[in-house]
Amino acid sequence: MFGYLRPFKDEMKIREYDLYKSVYCGLCRSMKKDYGLRSSLTLNYDCTVLAMLYMSLNNDSYCKEKGRCTVNPLKKCSICRSDSEAFAFAGAVSIIMTYYKLLDTIRDSGILKKAGAFFLRLFFRRSYKRARKSYPLIDQYTSEMMASQSEAEEGNAGIDKAADPTAGLISRICRMICPAGAFSAPAESFGYYVGRWIYLMDACDDLEKDIKKNSFNPFSSVYEGDIVKTMAYCNEVLNMTAAQIVMSYELFPVGQFREILDNIVYYGLSFQQKKYTEDRYADREAVK
């Protein structure tokens, strides 16, 4: 999870934005409590969405209170509090995925990055162990996902196959947050396509870098020297995935956080796609 899943701020009401931020702060605080202060460094926007979805699907009550930022005590902020398991769960997902991502970096990267990732791994090791102990299933799913991911990359997989491991992982995580098997079909499908979308966004983001370094990227076979055209194609692939996200989302009984989640699905996906596939290359001419 890399933080691509975000609301589009321009279309939010101020109270919605405040609530969104308070969930972010609430997650940060809960991670500090459960897994130690350093674990808060792994916090990202995707896990904030996961926490909201968790509370929404389970109808868990929450409240907003004033407090101080965990990382910077000089800053005041409002913090979302809840008895829900949502924060502990989303926090564990964040830590476990970051940890595995570091393992992956150690395996794939050059010596300097390798060393950095190695120390970070040691740094997060304790938090990771605690998270793994509370949520062994998340750990198991993630390690399975990493295995099939490297298998797919070694086999130079196409777009669908390359995206499948991440998609499958998020799908399983979304199944875990459903109350006792209820609406698990739309949740699994929603998770699958969100995972796919995140993976493909990341692939778009890294495309130029990967081509330069000759590393695996599912879009590199499409690329024929023209980044603008390739990005238009990537956007089509993302659009088809986003359409499936919308279709699954609309079958959820989303209650709380509805406005924020609606914003993410109807505006956020679109805005992020535009940012990564179009705006970034706005100054480049299409090769004719």
Binding site: N235, V237, N239, S270, K274
Partner: peptide, 15 residues
Amino acid sequence: RVTTQRSGAAGGYQP
């Protein structure tokens, strides 16, 4: 149907 989805008319970004 799937072609329409690719255009961004059913979700995502429509250039």
